[in-house]
Write a protein that binds this DNA or RNA. Structure first.
Lengths: 263, 263
DNA sequence: CGACGATACTTTATGGCGTAAGGAGATGCA
DNA sequence: TGCATCTCCTTACGCCATAAAGTATCGTCG
């Protein structure tokens, strides 16, 4: 599921995110819940069961209410996801300073974001097309911009570079998150899955090696799969590919700086 | 929605994809449909209405059948999506030869993939964690590997580079696809959306400029939005960012080659 | 102090989804 | 001719978001 920015009243969600809501004494029963509590509970549900496990019923149940009770506090599920997203973005650091200059900062930034997305894989399902316009979203943009400005490059180039880094980090996180969730949902590890599939492949396509020689070459020198699938990403199989990929990008940025100096 | 590789009998879908199915004369009514027809129809539905609009009911309706009729031909919806994915991948070119060497080939490859994903945005929702193992999927891998092998780099590095390019292209396509679909679903263009949101932002966060100076700098020298939103990507606003991002990646690959030669 | 209106929360209902189960009718072969 | 097998249908289940309407609780005003 891809979730688009809230269909409800945009003013309402922005007031919530920027802390501009007034809570006055009004007639009627005391509220047993609060928007903030609902957001936190929903984040908890999504962290465990993913975006597809995030339902109004599930959140309500955790709070001892029906799904409909939540609509007293939140106009639509889309708005709730917006609020969840901006709130959880607050976990990310906002300052990077490295003795290795922008290279070190970009590296730390990328690793922090990768871990963030693996901690909250549902964030990868939130549409990037129309931003939530919350304070934490702007803070992450501010942080990234600050790091990249150290390169001295002009904004149009920086936008391109930011896109490269962002797409790379999110793509890597997505692949890893999908792998983990597939393993959990099917109860079959990647290794076992491949062991059951590869014989079928030989059977069904006997000329495989002749048809796809390059693809086979590409498999050379693969690191052994980890013994413990619960290890953090830094020790997982994806780490090598992530590190070399990031290095390529950093070298690309450096080359772009050199070209800008020369030209 | 993220779709994971088919839950049905893996052998069945592989036989379909690799063309290993025998159609013998058997008792019972003549089949009015075929797996292939269902796949093509489903692709048509998904191209127009996206992955979220792809339902067994919708596909059945296009074929003048009920949803359940499809289950005579296809074990689960997940398997159908697998078959759709591998089939549509057949659109992609398999040979690239450029007088500009691997740089030209990678550029063409990236542009072809970007256009492919914008033609079939639902492909971005297919999980990359566990491949479909179809002939066209392997063909695209073979093609990409062939291009990258021209760089002379070793497989582990090439895997990192392939990841960078793939994540970048898919990420750029995803953002653009989400933007288009948001515009279509809400009936509000990106420009109008921003025009209605930005006054709210000033209202709700009066100290915006002081809090996020870098983010504002980042907006400098933005290209004017296109007059016609139906233009192909090459003339759209994303084109500039895509082109410069790709250039950075290509420079990064080149720098990696130089380092490999030197070291 | 009693009535009123706003609020919190519930139940019920609508129209979607994938797909299990079972049944009707058509067809090839013994 | 009868039977096994196949296509396709209807019905049903348990999910989903959320609209509508009802009940109980409270602050406030007359």
């Amino acid at each position: 599921m891809v979730v688009y920015a809230g269909q409800g009243d945009p003013r309402w969600s922005m007031d919530v995110m920027w802390g501009n809501r007034v809570s006055s004494q009004r007639p009627g029963p005391k509220p047993g819940l609060s928007v903030d509590l609902i957001i936190d509970t929903a984040i908890g549900v999504a962290d465990v069961d993913g975006m597809s496990g995030l339902s109004m019923r599930a959140v309500g149940e955790r709070l001892g209410r029906t799904a409909m009770a939540l609509y007293t506090y939140v106009p639509t599920k889309g708005d709730l996801v917006d609020l969840m997203y901006d709130k959880v973005l607050g976990e990310l650091p906002t300052g990077y300073r490295s003795e290795r200059g922008w290279r070190g900062s970009v590296t730390s930034w990328a690793e922090d974001h990768l871990e963030f997305h693996l901690r909250h894989p549902w964030t990868l399902q939130v549409s990037q097309a129309r931003p939530v316009l919350g304070p934490n979203e702007f803070a992450t943009l501010e942080t990234a911009s600050g790091i990249l400005h150290e390169t001295g490059l002009r904004p149009p180039v920086l936008r391109g570079i930011l896109g490269v880094v962002l797409h790379f980090v999110r793509g890597a996180a997505r692949t890893e998150a999908e792998a983990r969730s597939a393993a959990e949902e099917t109860g079959v590890s990647d290794e076992d899955w491949w062991h059951s599939r590869s014989p079928l492949l030989v059977e069904v396509a006997p000329d495989f090696a002749a048809r796809f020689p390059m693809a086979i070459k590409m498999e050379q020198d693969k690191p052994a799969p980890p013994d413990d699938p619960k290890k953090p990403y830094l020790e997982s199989a994806m780490a090598e590919s992530f590190a070399t990929g990031l290095e390529v990008i950093l070298d690309g940025i450096e080359a772009t700086i050199e070209k800008a100096k020369a030209g």
